[in-house]
């Protein structure tokens, strides 16, 4: 099976460790993620001002590229890109007045009416591949690893694009259990990681991150898994800042779900780009003997 894939700018550079294992894992499951031949930055955040259509152009252009490919489904791995593309898609479907204005403005493009279905990679794993099939393909069960699933904001809010009902969320849990690991559900699982405030107000950002780490640790997590490169940056790469500020915090490795999946499928550390992770990721994986087992 082939499916159109939107990686997003960050996954092509800083978060190759999310992109590469994702593509490899899906390949092992018999799905070829085909990157759109021409795409642009989606804008990362959905435009919330009612009179601002300019910022909808970028995500709509990407959706037009999918139609140009003769496809009607787009798989997105990055949570922020998913949220932006999915909301722009809904608006193009439901608001005929704005749709007309946007289509008229982009005279160089074909008209777009929301034909494409925007799907997050996690939903794709559940709905199109299925946990049973994934379970059968697991070569290195991540037995004994206690993982805290971190959803963040953009997978679950607002409701119109939520990948599952926030109060009955099971996607990460099902994936973690399918890979043979143990789920540590923790209260801060859907809290905000401070997002772009890490740049605008770094001190506030680090405080927010510290609370999430503390929550995950107090519930006994050994690792955090996420699907957003900005969450990973805040919780992972900026964890040092949090540890420096709060003595009681311990190092807590953060992973992308694609890395754990690739590892569990027996694809080895080579496709995981662990060097782009921080804080003891390889140490933890070695101590659990997940790297030598493949």
């Amino acid at each position: 099976m082939k499916i159109s894939y939107y990686p997003g700018c960050t996954l092509k550079t800083k978060a190759k460790n999310m992109d590469c294992p994702g593509v490899a894992a899906l390949n092992a499951l018999g799905v070829e993620l085909v990157e759109l031949p021409r795409w642009n930055c989606c804008g990362a955040v959905f435009s919330l001002a009612d009179d601002d259509l300019l910022h909808l152009l970028a995500p709509v252009r990407d959706l037009i590229r999918v139609v140009e490919q003769g496809d009607n489904k787009l798989v997105v791995a990055c949570s922020m890109c998913y949220n932006t593309l999915a909301r722009a898609n809904l608006l193009m479907r439901e608001n005929s007045e704005k749709r007309h204005t946007i289509n008229t403005f982009m005279e160089e493009e074909r008209d777009y009416n929301g034909e494409v279905e925007v799907v997050h990679l996690l939903s794709f794993l559940r709905d199109e591949i299925g946990w049973e099939k994934i379970k059968e393909s697991i070569k290195v069960p991540l037995r004994g690893l206690k993982i805290a699933p971190y959803y963040g904001c953009t997978l679950l809010r607002p409701q119109s694009v939520a990948i599952e009902p926030p109060e009955k969320r099971t996607l990460f849990k099902d994936l973690i259990e399918t890979m043979g690991a143990t789920v540590v559900d923790f209260p801060a699982s859907t809290d905000c990681c401070s997002s772009y405030q890490i740049l605008s107000n770094p001190d506030i950002g680090i405080e927010t991150v510290s609370k999430i780490l503390e929550s995950a640790e107090s519930w006994g997590a050994e690792a955090i898994v996420t699907s957003c490169p900005l969450c990973e940056y805040n919780l992972g790469k900026r964890q040092e800042d949090a540890l420096r500020k709060h003595d009681k915090l311990k190092e807590l490795p953060t992973f992308y779900f694609t890395q754990l999946l690739a590892l569990a499928l027996g694809l080895g550390a080579e496709v995981c780009n662990f060097e782009l992770n921080h804080n003891g990721v390889v140490r933890l994986m070695e101590s659990k003997k997940f790297l030598t087992a493949a």
Binding site: G8, C9, T10, T13, K14, A15, C41, G43, A44, V45, H55, C78, M80, C81, S195, Y196, I198, L199, S200, P229, L230, Y233, K237
Partner: peptide, 15 residues
């Protein structure tokens, strides 16, 4: 140099 693109894009969009 350290920031991921989405941090820059979203921050500039909002601020």
């Amino acid at each position: 140099a350290g920031l991921p693109q989405i941090a820059l894009v979203s921050c500039f969009r909002k601020h």
